[in-house]
Design a protein around this nucleic acid. Structure first.
Lengths: 203, 203
DNA sequence: TAGATTGTTAATCGATTAACAATC
DNA sequence: TAGATTGTTAATCGATTAACAATC
């Protein structure tokens, strides 16, 4: 039987396969159809899925019911993840108001800020708390995921505190490559860098 | 002399080298120092820079003045880029309020929405206009970069209009892989997918 | 059986790294 | 000259693609 650890780039593609399956509303779908919907090659579709098991039927295709459940399980979805957000500025507030996260099961229970005017507010599912309570709340509630929408200057310092409190995965919007232990996952969304990439393509 | 087209992954690293140089405040910097600051290997630093020319002095390192100017030129920065933003919802408003873009020379001149309550408002450097005027304004002002903060349902349709109006580069926040012509650059920032990646690492 | 499509192997493509001659 | 560091080649590593036997 085929075995090997899936490369990291496969994971976001699984998300896209999942979306494509939902959109298709089919009972059975082939790698060729998934290819057309996602713009990845059919070989890549089959290869990506094969990293995780045998979900298809030769000559037929993939039963969407099976495939949906399998991908959900692989990605760790279909359950609720508790999330905290740190930094209730413009971007932080916007993300708190965004309803899309909850739809995929990511529920922001607490937000943190040091601005007394913001503390105590409720935005969507989140209560804004004093950043002094950061460690206490994360430990008490056993929260593992944090979204960081802080200014550059304090991002690393807060990250260190998050990790010390038990956070295992960070989605970082501050324009800095966070230093985190190997066991912690940090994904950076760096808007300036993305714009600079666009500028490059225009040149 | 060494030649070959730089792979796309090199470009965002150039942005990070640039930041590291600014931070270091040095007159001369070695690939080894850049390696420590950016967490990329020194071989990769030298390799990446070599795609674009010979900027260093063997035995010495890189003059930061030379390197800064070179990277600015490569990335197409150090000038003002006019940008439009489409979709003045939570995320769109947050991005309009963000001061970081202007600092790198990306100035959002116009935002578009179909909500009459929003039309006519001014947020930061941008005036919110009726989305009906999208094509007219983009053509008149010769704008090449667009930021898309729209719901999924209308993202592709608006994209087609943007491209028809002359937009060459799109930063897309809608959870959809836009279909664009080869000559157009589209970068997707898909928050749900990023969260799903985090969930995967936790499993 | 004929046609379709998976799962997997081997070949290809692309990016990173190690190593070192050339240079200051 | 001795020491340091670049630029570039060749080796390695990793991911994608083509092809097809196995299967329905």
């Amino acid at each position: 039987m085929f075995k090997r650890k899936a490369p990291q780039v496969v994971i976001p593609r699984l998300s896209l396969y999942y979306r494509a399956i939902l959109e298709s509303r089919k009972e059975v779908i082939s790698s060729d159809e998934l290819s057309k919907l996602t713009q990845f090659s059919s070989a890549q579709v089959r290869r990506d899925l094969a990293y995780f098991g045998q979900f298809g039927i030769p000559g037929i295709g993939y039963e969407t019911k099976v495939l949906k459940n399998s991908i959900l399980k692989i990605l760790g979805l279909g359950r609720e993840w508790k999330v905290v957000l740190v930094g209730v500025g413009n971007l932080g507030s916007a993300l708190l108001s965004y309803k899309g996260f909850a739809k995929q099961g990511f529920k922001i229970f607490y937000a943190f800020d040091n601005n007394p005017r913001k503390i105590g507010k409720r935005i969507n599912s989140a209560i804004v708390k004093d950043i002094k309570e950061l460690s206490k709340v994360i430990k008490e509630k056993g929260i593992k995921i944090a979204i960081l929408t802080l200014p550059y200057e304090v991002a690393q310092e807060v990250t260190d505190r998050l990790i010390a409190s038990g956070i295992k995965a960070i989605l970082n919007f501050a324009p800095i490559r966070l230093r985190v232990p190997k066991k912690t996952a940090a994904l950076n969304i760096d808007l300036s860098i993305e714009l600079e990439r666009l500028a490059y393509y225009l040149t």
